[in-house]
Structures are given as structure tokens and as C-alpha cells.
Amino acid sequence: MKVRINVIVNGEKHHLEVKPNHTLVDVLREELSLTGTKKGCGSGKCGSCTVLMDGRPVNSCLILAPQADGREVVTIEGLAGREPHPLQKAFAEKGAIQCGYCAPGMILTAKALLDVNPNPQEEEIRFAIAGNLCRCTGYSKTVEAIRSCANSSRNNRPSAGRKAYA
């Protein structure tokens, strides 16, 4: 038996029929081919599958597909406007990406942090991304990349790089 849901993903409306036991990550990856959202553990422990749901970061492997009904979801594919988001640039340029499997989730968590706290201290950054595991970088460059996008380190807050619906 399938359940109908309406969900906005990266600004686009989708009417989907989903298995009720399926999770949001499965819907994104399998139904919508949005494989930028990664699956690292399937149980909400690694953060690889982080997406923004109504602007807040969630482990999409813990959200049952029917729970996404009526929600607005942003995945890594929807973060960039015409230009990559400043966080995406910073992660690449500062060496915060090695294997990159954690990067989509990590970047979206950082985006959610900067949305509510545009000028976080290092401890606040570390606290915010503590649910996103990275096994490659040791987090030093990750923190550096996020800090470089904080309000105080930028001349102009790049509203142009922010997606209107995000």
C-alpha cells in the first residue's frame, strides 16, 4: 500500500506515492534521483543524509516519507543559485572536503546554523556540526570553512547566493 504525499523539494512541487515505511532519504535518492543526499548509517547517527526541512536540518533517514507531506525540503542540489553557495565554495577552497561523503550534510547543517546565527563562535560551530560525522578531515578545516562564511569574515552578506526558498 502506498501513501500520497505533496512535498516541495528544492522549490519544485512533487506529488508522490510512497511506501509508508520508506524514509525521506530513500524518496529523495530513489524517487527523485537526488543522490547528493548520502546514506551513511540509516539510523540517524552520522548526519550524512542531512537535508533542510522547513529550514531546519534533519536526518532524512529518520523522517518517514509521509512525515514529509506538506513540507519544504532543500537538498544539497538545491542550495546553489546560479553560483555555488558561499559555503560550497568555502568547503572546496579551504580543504574541508576529502572524500566528500559527509560534505552535503555538513554544508546544509552549516547553512542552517548561519541562518539563525550569522556570526557563530568556534564552539557554536562545533556544537552545530557535532551530529555530522567526518572521518577524513579531523574537522579543523571544516570549522575554518564555516567561519570564513560567518558575517564578520565577509564584506557583504551574499544574499545572492542564498536560495529564495531555502
Partner: peptide
């Protein structure tokens, strides 16, 4: 230099 494939990874385009 940033890793030559870092931007693809940051954009979620890399196919693992």
C-alpha cells in the same frame, strides 16, 4: 590547490 573534484563534491554532483 583545492582538490580538483572538491567543488563537484560540495555541490552533491559526485556519483559515489
Amino acid at each position: 590547490y583545492p582538490q580538483i573534484d572538491a567543488m563537484e563534491k560540495a555541490m552533491g554532483k559526485t556519483k559515489f
